[in-house]
Write a protein that binds this DNA or RNA. Sequence first.
DNA 1: GTGAAACATGAATCAATATTCAACTTGAAA
DNA 2: TTTCAAGTTGAATATTGATTCATGTTTCAC
Lengths: 209, 209
Amino acid sequence: MPQPAADTVTEGQPGLIVPKTERGRRTLRALLDAAALEFGANGFHATGITDITRRAGVALGSFYTYFASKEDIFRALVSDLSGQVKTEVAPHVEAAPDALSRERAALAGFLDFVTRQQLIYRIIDEAEFVAPDAYQGHYRKTVARIAARLEDGAAKGELRAGVGEVEAWAIAGMNVFLGLRYGVWGEGEELSEVVARAHRLVAEGLGRR
Amino acid sequence: MPQPAADTVTEGQPGLIVPKTERGRRTLRALLDAAALEFGANGFHATGITDITRRAGVALGSFYTYFASKEDIFRALVSDLSGQVKTEVAPHVEAAPDALSRERAALAGFLDFVTRQQLIYRIIDEAEFVAPDAYQGHYRKTVARIAARLEDGAAKGELRAGVGEVEAWAIAGMNVFLGLRYGVWGEGEELSEVVARAHRLVAEGLGRR
DNA sequence: GTGAAACATGAATCAATATTCAACTTGAAA
DNA sequence: TTTCAAGTTGAATATTGATTCATGTTTCAC
């Protein structure tokens, strides 16, 4: 009886099975990769388990060795991709010399990621409805990173004092919408121009000096 | 044969039937209202046609007198709500004396709307996946209004020159995320504080003066 | 008052598909 | 070489729920 034995479990992701053999790890990865492509292209509800297993080159039944349900694999995917976004953007940010340019670098890195991984990125967005907990988790973590950067910048005197969580949510929203409009829906607009304009807004605001 | 006769159609919404009698108008409205509650509370896919008709106090079959499909009523609803958001926010904006306070008023009005109409508001968000065209339409219109305000402000010398579409998308994203975080997920944070902070970001940016 | 168009009804249809299950295979440790 | 836990398989199940349709009722213009 191959009931997903509640055995080893990765970081707080209840229900996520960790394979014990190399063969198992390969199958698990194949399923996740296939799911990313299918969910990204067709969305959660239009994607069938068979679409995923077919693309992964795996039997239908094997799916349930690794995931308890369709929602389960979606949740796992969101964690996976949340990590990817962070990993892609981080080096850009770290290379920047001061607080303001760190925010510009974060936006530039994010726009770049979204543009290259449009389908993939939509999965995170759809999580708002398919896996709200995973969605909240992703953005709470993202915003916490931004807020930490801002507070650090303020402490160093590179930003005005008092910036914090609200400003971080505002910036996150800005970035996400610019990503949607110019990264996903974009029709060849110059991304560096978008970054420059958005950054000026963040740095100086809209008022006359 | 009560096939939705392709007859009169409201503003560019193909497939939307306009009832010819008072009774029909009442039923249509009951369906839209019920759908808003059900979709808002349970989401598109968890909501059945029967949930909508039951709540509306109408027979299952009557649904198809007015809508060709479940997606059809969802689309109609998004248009409906898009109009409501605009109508709710507009008076706040118009009462404001200058460009910068207009943006503050818009955010304040929007946060207020989202807080009072949380369930309703989620429908617009879910449209990104259920009715992408309606979703794009909503935001393109919203952003066009913001951009027009900004350009007007710049022309009057109340804002710096050169602000436009990119800035408008940035502000829209800011507002939406603040609405999600403090309006929908909020746990009693002081909204006026949120508005004040976000507005200072828009007016002055994060840099030191 | 009459007739036709508009609207209402809900049981029956019908396709989709997530999930289960019992039998089979693999691979590595003993 | 045997053994067994781990992994694989895909046909069968079971439910769900959107859509159809044939029939009944209401409205209103004439």
